[in-house]
Simulated scan of single mutants.
Amino acid sequence: MERDIKPVGFYKNKAKSIKETAKILIDKYNGALPDSIEALTKLKGVGRKTANVIMANIFGVPSIIVDTHCMRLSNRIGFVKSKDPDKIEFELRKIVPFDMYTTFSNLMVYHGRATCKARKPKCSECIINNVCDFYKRLSNDIILNV
Rank of each mutant, 00 (worst) to 15 (best):
K12I: 09
R76E: 01
D133H: 13
K94A: 11
R3A: 13
S17R: 11
K6E: 14
R48G: 05
K122H: 04
K49M: 10
F98Q: 15
K28G: 04
L40G: 02
A114I: 10
K83R: 14
I18H: 03
G31L: 08
K16R: 15
V146C: 09
V46F: 01
V146G: 11
P7S: 09
K14R: 14
G47P: 05
I128M: 13
I127W: 03
F98H: 15
M100Y: 14
K87P: 03
P62N: 05
N75S: 12
K28W: 03
I128Y: 07
R3E: 15
I5H: 06
I24C: 02
Y135D: 00
G112A: 07
N145W: 14
R93Q: 15
I88A: 10
D99Y: 15
S63G: 09
Y110N: 09
L144W: 04
K81G: 06
I5D: 08
T102L: 05
P62R: 15
L92G: 01
L43P: 01
D86G: 06
S74P: 07
M108G: 11
L138D: 01
N13R: 14
N57P: 04
H111A: 07
D67P: 03
H111V: 06
Y11K: 04
K16G: 01
V61N: 01
I54A: 00
P7M: 11
V109S: 08
T103L: 14
M108Y: 11
I64N: 00
M71V: 04
L138E: 01
R93V: 13
I18D: 04
F59Q: 06
I24V: 07
I88T: 09
V66W: 03
E125Y: 06
S124R: 15
A51W: 02
I5F: 10
V80Q: 07
K19G: 06
A56G: 10
I142S: 02
K19N: 13
D67S: 09
